[in-house]
Amino acid sequence: MSLRAAALLSTLVLSGTVFAQTAAPAPDYTVSYNIGVVSDYRYRGISQSAKRPALQGGLDVAHSSGFYAGLWGSTIRWIEDSAAPSLDGKVEIDLYGGYKGALTDSVGYDLGGLFYWYPNNNLSTVTGENANTFELYGALSAGPATIKYSHAMTTLFGAANSKGSGYLDLSATFDLGNGFSVVPHVGWQRIDNFGTYRDYAITLAKDFGDGFVGSAAVVGTNWDDRFGAPATLVGSGNRDLGKSGLVLGLKKTF
């Protein structure tokens, strides 16, 4: 082999090595889907499904710049149960979007808005206000901990004169290894012209791989202590919708 041929072969081998080691560029957009079931749909500690199972699912789109958007839905019962005879409103659909960034290497932020849409609901025939609700939110995260505040720009889930209500959420996620994680949470919901209650939860989750995650959570509120009566609705009978309980869940992400 001539010196020129050997040099050319060496160049081609080295170039191939460089190409093999060069990772493909990350896509600008990522899209994920999820579907799941829970034994009880709790939101801010209060059962939305009359302490019965609920089907849930969502779609998330994220851009490499930090912008994101998505939707999420669940079966519910609280609107139908708010009066007798039952009202219309079997489904909750959440539409949201925002931006995630970093203030420092260790502190991140998340700013956005969320619209809670209850198709065909007629809660206004009882409360005078539509159940549909829009909130703006902001969050800061450092290490495993996150603090988030949500502010209602409309009345809050059909509660009369509740525009301007706010929710403060403190939570953290701790990796226990072997696919296990634990998430403690405490929150305070202020309902303008009504009062404030506290909710709490501790969730144990297990990642089984292939997108499957199971969870078990103890969830509750101090509603009874704060307002002197359990959280009940006409259609849910004597079920205390804010009482502590165990919630099981299974979700698959694609």
Rank of each mutant, 00 (worst) to 15 (best):
S39A: 04
L55T: 13
Y43N: 15
S39W: 04
V37D: 02
S86C: 00
N120A: 06
L111I: 11
V37P: 05
D94Q: 04
V18R: 09
V38G: 02
E129A: 05
G58P: 08
T75H: 13
T75R: 09
D88T: 05
N120E: 08
L12Y: 10
Y41L: 14
A50C: 15
G36Q: 08
Y118M: 00
I76E: 05
L12P: 01
D40E: 06
L103K: 10
W117I: 01
P27K: 12
S74F: 13
S82T: 08
N34R: 02
V107N: 05
N120K: 09
T127A: 10
L123D: 07
I93N: 05
R52G: 14
S124Y: 15
D60V: 03
I76N: 05
E92M: 09
A131L: 01
G57F: 02
P53Y: 08
G101Q: 02
I93M: 09
G66L: 08
D110L: 02
G57P: 05
T104G: 13
L55P: 07
D60P: 02
T22I: 08
F19Y: 12
Q48E: 07
D110C: 00
A20Q: 00
A83P: 08
V61K: 07
K51M: 14
V38W: 03
N121R: 05
S47V: 02
T11G: 13
P119Y: 12
L114S: 00
Q21P: 01
A69T: 03
L103G: 05
L59W: 01
N34E: 08
K90C: 06
T17M: 11
I93C: 07
L14Y: 04
L114K: 01
N34S: 08
A24E: 12
S49M: 01
A131N: 05
D81L: 09
S82C: 09
L123P: 06
F115D: 06
I79N: 04
L111V: 11
S86M: 05
E129M: 12
S65H: 08
G58E: 06
Q48R: 01
F19G: 12
S106N: 14
I93F: 14
F67W: 14
L59N: 02
L71M: 10
S15P: 10
S15W: 13
V38I: 00
A26K: 14
S86T: 03
Y109F: 15
F67E: 04
V38Y: 00
N34V: 09
L14H: 03
V18P: 07
Q56W: 13
R77M: 07
T30E: 10
D40C: 07
V91S: 04
S32V: 04
A24M: 12
L123S: 04
S82R: 05
R44G: 11
G66C: 00
S65F: 09
F115T: 03
A62N: 09
W117F: 14
R44I: 06
R42Y: 10
G112I: 01
A131E: 06
E129C: 09
H63Y: 07
T11A: 15
S15D: 15
A84I: 15
R77K: 13
D94V: 06
L111G: 02
S106Q: 10
Q21K: 13
V31E: 08
R44T: 12
I35H: 03
Y99K: 00
A83S: 14
T125K: 11
R52A: 11
G58V: 03
L114D: 03
